[in-house]
Amino acid sequence: MRGDTMTELLLEVKNLKVHFETENGTVTAVDDVSFSVKRGETVGVVGESGCGKSVTAESILRLLNEKHTNYEGNILFEEKDILKLSYSELQKVRGNDISMIFQDPMSSLNPVYTVGNQIVEALLLHQNLTKKEAESKAVEMLKLTGIPLPEKRVNEYPHELSGGMRQRVMIAMALSCKPKLLIADEPTTALDVTTQSQILDLINELKDEFNMGTIMITHDLGVVAEVCTKVVVMYLGQVIEEASVESIFSSPLHPYTQGLLKSIPQIEGPRDEKLYVIEGKVPTLTQIPKGCRFAPRCEFATEICRDKMPQLESYENDLKVRCWHFKDIQEKRGGMNGSRNESQTVNS
């Protein structure tokens, strides 16, 4: 039996750094990222495009091209360090203990094989099944994801299916071996709104059914609100805040998180209100600021911010934040924040 308690640690990423060797020298796309996932828990990873979400996710399965990639730190899955596994050990973890769903369902399935073939492949790799058994299991998995006529779909090629259906196939494939951890890298970004929420519901449901830990990568805070229990906010390769979903939405600590929240469009709010955008651009990986990485865009930045990099520090019970001044900012914003929350509850 596994996953009796929610408190049991499944995955622990500790001080992960990912360096890429490129033609223009080494870049560090992920710089000291730590977070953990318990069994059955859904952790959201959010941040702007390019902040290192996918690199972090793919590091967990070591999917990056290791000829040009150097890792530092630890990725402990059930206490074993994935970064130290041999290649054949790694292949036993992939698709079996840990599965992944990717952003673009249109290009994530092999165009020259039927979807059934691709699900069966995963089953035959990790489970002691005959081809026949695997085939009926594939149909069963497709049915589980709510694809109509699974017996027919199983023999179709990816191009015969819609984007939403392909993502369901990806989910069926990822879950076919009952993984303990599912990594979903923006699984709904490429889909239309209705399909988006269907897919999210599906992942949520199956997660409970399988008691699966889940990492939900997204830049959509709406998705976080819908499915996550904990959120990790990333900026330029670093974790800048970690908190429960409730506290991220009610009292975000980091100025960047506050900006992200302010930039969500409010359906109920006054129409003429201009959408808030965080000013400035994300620096590139080759010109990372020496102090706080957010300093060039931060309205609260001071001397120390530009000079020294803040560390990710724990605050109260479950919160972590990387900012020199978060306490002062918290005090300053106190009143304003309260009224904002009030108006939200009134509206919803």
Binding site: R94, G95, S99, M100, S108, V112
Partner: peptide
């Protein structure tokens, strides 16, 4: 991307090359 998918399933590298890559 589908090669990444195949790797994420735990497919061996020789099968990746022969089955998933060469045919395409």
């Amino acid at each position: 991307n589908y090669i990444k998918t195949a790797r994420s399933k735990g497919v061996k590298e020789t099968i990746i090359v022969i089955k998933h890559t060469l045919r395409n």
